[in-house]
Amino acid sequence: MAFSVGKRMDQNTLVLEVNGNVDEDANFTPPDLGSSTNVALDLEAVTAINSVGIREWIKWVKTMPSSIQLSVRRCPKIIVDQINMVAGFLPAGTTIESFYVPYYADASGTEKMVLFKNGVEFKGSELFAPDSVKDDGGEEMEMDVIEAKYFKFLKNG
């Protein structure tokens, strides 16, 4: 899917909805933030990111003024993987509002993405994972990540 950045207001937060493939074809013009001091990057619709995309993303987020309070929400696993892999993928002080965690059912081989929200499923670096996650057939699912690696970024925040 082609890259685009949409804008909308969520109360006093400017939400930039990042869509599509973050790669060499993505147009990363610095966004017009107007007078907003709170900016949230909604990343749910990011479909893929490659190595050039990682680099261009880092250059793009660096254009955000330091006076902005930046947050990210609904980060898919492909983005969480980059946050953990590449120091500086998110500027220091970025608030993590929410991100997806994969769950897997061995019996059915199915997976499900569960949204972890700040203040609910995590607070700071502390996790409060759901007691039970089930697949569509009612089978119990397990968190499908190596916790020390996947949640490492929460400790660095």
Partner: peptide, 8 residues
Amino acid sequence: ALSNKKRS
């Protein structure tokens, strides 16, 4: 047919 965890 392996979970992400086992793959990693």
